[in-house]
Design a protein around this nucleic acid. Structure first.
Length: 604
DNA sequence: TTAAAGATGAATAGGATG
DNA sequence: CATCCTATTCATCTTTAA
C-alpha cells in the first residue's frame, strides 16, 4: 500500500457473444482495447508525487480549462500547494457543489480536514503533546462562511467546557477540540468528538504516503495507541458521567438482525426518509462488518450522509450467519429475493452430513464463514476424544468441547466421529456464488478461502438491490469499489439486471482475474473496466469514466474490514487501521461521483 | 519459492444473577 | 447497579512441508 505497484490498466472489453438472456445494448463490437492511462498534468500523480516546480501557471490554467474560476483556483492552490492535484480538484469541485446547492456541513468536512491536515509537522506522536499550538495554525477562516449557521453563536454551556477540558486533558489541542465540538454540535457525545478528531488524523495519515516507512510505522503506531487510549478515556468519561445521554447515541444492533426486513420476516419500518444530500441517483450501497469496534458505525454513518445503517444477518437468507451493516440510499419497498432460494439450513445445504450428525449437535446454521479454516490435526484430536467415549453419547464436558470447536471453525460431520471444515466450493454455494467461481486460474486453495471469506453473501445483497430492477430495465452502469470476487455484479446479474458497464476497483490481481473470467463465461455484453487501486481513482479518472460510459447509476462496495473484524488479533485498529481506512476513499469517490454527475446533470 | 498448517485472544454484546 | 458467564467474530503471523 505504500506504493502503488500496479499501473492503471483499464481494459475496455466489448464482448460480441450473443447467446444469453441479456439483449444487445452493447457498444459497437471491437477487439479489446486499452484505454490510455490518464497522464495529464494533474492526474496519475498520487498524493505523494510532486509536480515540477514553478508550474503553477500551467496548473492554474489546467483547472481554469476545466471551468473553474481562475481566482478560486489560485486561492485553492495557494492554500493547498501545487503538489496534490487530486486534492486541489476535489476541493474545487466541492466549492462548486456548495455554490450550486446549500448542502449539509458534512459534505465539506473531509476537504476541510484534509486541507487542514496538510500542514503536518505533527506527525510526531500526539499523546505527549498537550500544547500543539502550531497545529491548526493555518487558515480555517476562509471557510467559516460556508457552514456556520446561526447556531454556533450560543454561549458555551458548562458541559461544553467540560468536554473541552476533557479533550484537552486527553492530549488534543484546544483548537482541535473546539473545532470538533463546533462541527459535531453542542450536543455531541465524547465518542463523536474523538471520532471526529480521529477521522481528521486518519485523513492526515492517508495523505502522507511520501514519508519514510519507519516514520509511517511510527505514525500509525501512535495512532492506534492513541485510539486505544481514547477508548480507555471514554470509559473513564462514562464512569465519570454515569449513564449519560451518549449511550443512546451509539448505534446499536437490532434484534433480530433483519434490517428493514427479510423475505421471511418483515420489520415494522416500511418506509424511511433519506436526507436530500444523499438521494440518488447515483444510488450507493456500502457494506462492512456489523460488529466493528465501538463508534465505527457512527463515523461511517456520519460520513455517508447520516443514513442509518441497515444491519442484516445473512442467516435469514442462507445456511450461514453473516452479520453485516449496509448503508445505502435505495428504496426499501417491494424488495424480492433471488430465486432459486438457497439452502436454508445445514442439512439442506449438506444432506450427506445428516447421516453422521449426532443428536446432541443442535446447530441448524453455520457461523460466519471466515478467511481461514480449521486444521486437520484439530479434527483428528476431536475424533480420538470421541472414540474414547464409545458408541454412546459422550459426556457433557466432551460435548461442550466438541461443540465449541465446531462453532468456532464451522465444522460439519462427514463420517463417524469425523468432523471437517468446509471445502471452498461449499463456501461458494453458501455465499451464493456459482460453484467453482474462484477455482482455477492459478489461485491457491488458501487464497480461495481468503477471497470467499471476504466477500458478500449474494442473496442478501441481491435482496437489497432487487428494487433496481424495475428502475433500470435497460441495464445499469456500476462503479464497484473493493469488488473482490464480484459479489455485487453476480447479485445484479442473477437479478436479471443487465450490466451495461462495470468499473471495478480491486487491488488483488487474482480477484480481478476471477471477475473477468466470470464476465466472459456469462457472456456479458457490457463493458468491464478494471482498476487496481482506489487511490488511483481521482477526479480526472472519474470524469473520464463518466464521459465514457455516461454516468454511474450505482456505486457499490464494502471497504476492507480486517482492522474492524473481531477475528483480528493483531491489528484491530478500527477505521484508522491501515486497510480499513480505505473507507474514506469510498466516501471520497462517492462524493466525487455525485459532484461530477451533479455538475453535468444537464448532459446526463 | 509457494502452499498449507498451526498458534495466537480481545472486543463486544447480551443474558443471568445477586 | 455490578459481576460473571456465554457466545461470536469478512484475521495475522510464523513455521513447516512440498
Amino acid at each position: 500500500m505504500a506504493e502503488n505497484n500496479t499501473s492503471l490498466d483499464c481494459n475496455i472489453d466489448w464482448n460480441s457473444d450473443d447467446d444469453r438472456e441479456i439483449d444487445n445494448y452493447g457498444l459497437p463490437s471491437s477487439s479489446t482495447l486499452t484505454a490510455a492511462p490518464s497522464n495529464g498534468g494533474s492526474s496519475g500523480s498520487g498524493e505523494g508525487s510532486s509536480s515540477s516546480p514553478g508550474s503553477n501557471f500551467e496548473l492554474i490554467q489546467h483547472f481554469v480549462g476545466m471551468g473553474f474560476p481562475e481566482k478560486q483556483v489560485a486561492q485553492v492552490i495557494d492554500e493547498l500547494g501545487d503538489k496534490n492535484h487530486n486534492l486541489v480538484l476535489e476541493t474545487l469541485l466541492t466549492y462548486s457543489a456548495l455554490e450550486n446547492s446549500p448542502k449539509q456541513p458534512n459534505d465539506i468536512q473531509v476537504s476541510e480536514e484534509v486541507q487542514r491536515d496538510l500542514s503536518v509537522q505533527e506527525l510526531q506522536p500526539v499523546q505527549s503533546d498537550h500544547s500543539s499550538a502550531d497545529y491548526c495554525a493555518n487558515s480555517f477562516d476562509e471557510f467559516s462562511d460556508v457552514d456556520s449557521p446561526a447556531r454556533d453563536v450560543e454561549t458555551p454551556s458548562s458541559d461544553e467546557d467540560d468536554k473541552l477540558l476533557f479533550l484537552a486533558g486527553m492530549g488534543y489541542s484546544v483548537d482541535e477540540a473546539s473545532i470538533a465540538i463546533e462541527r459535531c454540535g453542542p450536543d455531541s457525545t465524547l465518542e463523536e468528538l474523538t471520532d471526529f478528531i480521529c477521522a481528521a488524523q486518519m485523513a492526515r495519515a492517508s495523505d502522507i504516503h511520501f514519508i519514510e516507512l519507519d516514520e509511517k510505522k511510527l505514525n500509525l503506531g501512535s495512532l492506534s495507541k492513541l485510539k486505544r487510549r481514547k477508548n480507555q478515556d471514554c470509559d473513564a468519561w462514562k464512569k465519570k458521567k454515569h449513564r449519560c445521554e451518549e449511550e443512546d447515541e451509539l448505534i446499536r444492533l437490532p434484534k433480530p438482525m433483519i434490517g428493514y426486513g427479510v423475505p421471511t420476516e418483515s420489520n415494522e419500518i416500511v418506509h424511511r426518509t433519506i436526507p436530500e444530500a444523499a438521494k440518488g441517483p447515483p444510488y450507493f450501497y456500502y457494506e462492512n462488518v456489523a460488529l466493528a469496534p465501538t463508534g465505527v458505525w457512527n463515523t461511517i454513518s456520519r460520513f455517508l450522509y447520516d443514513i442509518e445503517p441497515e444491519f442484516v444477518d445473512s442467516k435469514f437468507f442462507c445456511a450461514c450467519a453473516r452479520k453485516r451493516g449496509y448503508i445505502h440510499n435505495l428504496p426499501i419497498e417491494n424488495r424480492f429475493p433471488l430465486v432459486p432460494l438457497p439452502p436454508f439450513t445445514i442439512h439442506e445445504a449438506f444432506p450427506l452430513t445428516k447421516k453422521w450428525w449426532p443428536a446432541w449437535d443442535k446447530r441448524t446454521k453455520l457461523n460466519c464463514l471466515q478467511t481461514s479454516i480449521g486444521s486437520a490435526k484439530m479434527t483428528e484430536r476431536i475424533r480420538k476424544a470421541l472414540e474414547e467415549c464409545g458408541d454412546d453419547d459422550p459426556p457433557l464436558h466432551v460435548q461442550k468441547y466438541v461443540l465449541d470447536l465446531c462453532r468456532k471453525w464451522n465444522l460439519v460431520w462427514v463420517g463417524k466421529n469425523k468432523l471437517a471444515p468446509l471445502e471452498p466450493d461449499e463456501f461458494e454455494t453458501l455465499l451464493g456464488f456459482p460453484k467453482n467461481h474462484t477455482r482455477g486460474g492459478g489461485i491457491s486453495r488458501t487464497d480461495r478461502y481468503k477471497s470467499l471469506g471476504n466477500s458478500f453473501q449474494v442473496d442478501t445483497v441481491a435482496y437489497h438491490l432487487s428494487v433496481l430492477k424495475d428502475m433500470y430495465p435497460e441495464g445499469i452502469n456500476v462503479l464497484s469499489l473493493f469488488s473482490g470476487i464480484g459479489g455485487a455484479e453476480i447479485a445484479l446479474h442473477r437479478l436479471g439486471i443487465p450490466l451495461k458497464a462495470v468499473v471495478e476497483v480491486e487491488i488483488s490481481e487474482a480477484n480481478r482475474n476471477i471477475m473477468r473470467s466470470w464476465w466472459e463465461q456469462t457472456n456479458q455484453r457490457g463493458t468491464l473496466i478494471d482498476i487496481a487501486d482506489v487511490q488511483q481513482v481521482d477526479a480526472d479518472k472519474l470524469s473520464e469514466l463518466i464521459d465514457l460510459i455516461g454516468g454511474f447509476d450505482l456505486v457499490i462496495g464494502g471497504s476492507p474490514c480486517n482492522n474492524l473484524a473481531g477475528s483480528n488479533r493483531v491489528s484491530r485498529d478500527g477505521l484508522e487501521g491501515k486497510e480499513s481506512a480505505l473507507f474514506y476513499d469510498y466516501f471520497r469517490i462517492l462524493d466525487l461521483v455525485k459532484t461530477i454527475m451533479g455538475s453535468r446533470s444537464v448532459r446526463y
